[in-house]
Design a protein around this nucleic acid. Sequence first.
DNA 1: GTCTATATGCAGATAGAC
DNA 2: GTCTATCTGCATATAGAC
Lengths: 178, 178
Amino acid sequence: MSSDSSSGTEQKIVEAAKKVFLEKGFDGARMQHIADEAGINKASLHYYYRSKERLFDKIFADAFMEFLPKIGRIMNSNIDFFDKIKAIVEHYINILSHNPHLPVFVLYELNRRPEKLLEMLKTTGVEPQQLKIIIDREVAAGRIFEIDFVNLIVNILSLCIFPFVGKPIIKGFIMQND
Amino acid sequence: MSSDSSSGTEQKIVEAAKKVFLEKGFDGARMQHIADEAGINKASLHYYYRSKERLFDKIFADAFMEFLPKIGRIMNSNIDFFDKIKAIVEHYINILSHNPHLPVFVLYELNRRPEKLLEMLKTTGVEPQQLKIIIDREVAAGRIFEIDFVNLIVNILSLCIFPFVGKPIIKGFIMQND
DNA sequence: GTCTATATGCAGATAGAC
DNA sequence: GTCTATCTGCATATAGAC
């Protein structure tokens, strides 16, 4: 029906692969499973992405971009400092609510191949130095307590992300929903 | 040198298996790798633990017990409330410093088989209800701000654990050590 | 209890018809 | 571009000598 280069099939593959890889990880995922999920043949996977490795790389890059990237853009915007933090927090709550497996997946796979981190950070365009400048300015102006900027970032990430990462444990602890 | 049922070999196997499983996860681990690490033959692994699955179960149970269990015991002790929190925090900092892979491993594998959580919690003897009672008492006495006890626990765990889980990312962010 | 050699099954990848 | 059939290698697991 069209000469469109990104056919519906490729879209289906990406969605299916994302689902399976995020649930099972690279080693646990099966090409057959991804094919079934996408409703196509296993051989077609290799037609579009020559290997499992290549398919995974695409999914992982996507996942990583969802996991980290917006921080830089929010921090560089002109809104109030506390609104920035609020925006970051809401950003994470939102994404992770729809994608509970995302953080464990990213962190786990990043352990497998730490060397990929640097290239990922470049792709996302995050500029850590600017965060430090912004936070130092707020501290100097007395608007927030003095705190090492690394601590602040780590704490924010901790409080946002871990509740989702640890959800199964927390649920087991409390024996109820949410 | 003895009729001791847990020979040196079994000890070597457990240590090697722990190392490999924590680094690679169940799917990524190779029995050959574990055997090499222990300095024994692959067949001996099956002699002691009949399958990869059984060996893994042992390692996972151990890891889980290191990850969660002491909280209950600390909370039930008679020391001051804030000292309890301090004890828990120090407990984690200590364990995770020596075992950085532990949290990702536990969380990741728990995703693979959520059904194992309940039996794990029973084994560790953690009693969530008691935490709530203790915290509610502190709130009523005005010694701490009113806070839902689930929030408090989750926050503490977040701030203790995530910095280790996210270490590779944080390192990449800051481009320096620790 | 520990080894070598081997059986078995499965997953990633390719060949080739349509 | 999509399928069926097949090749290939590898990982778990077992058999059996020592």
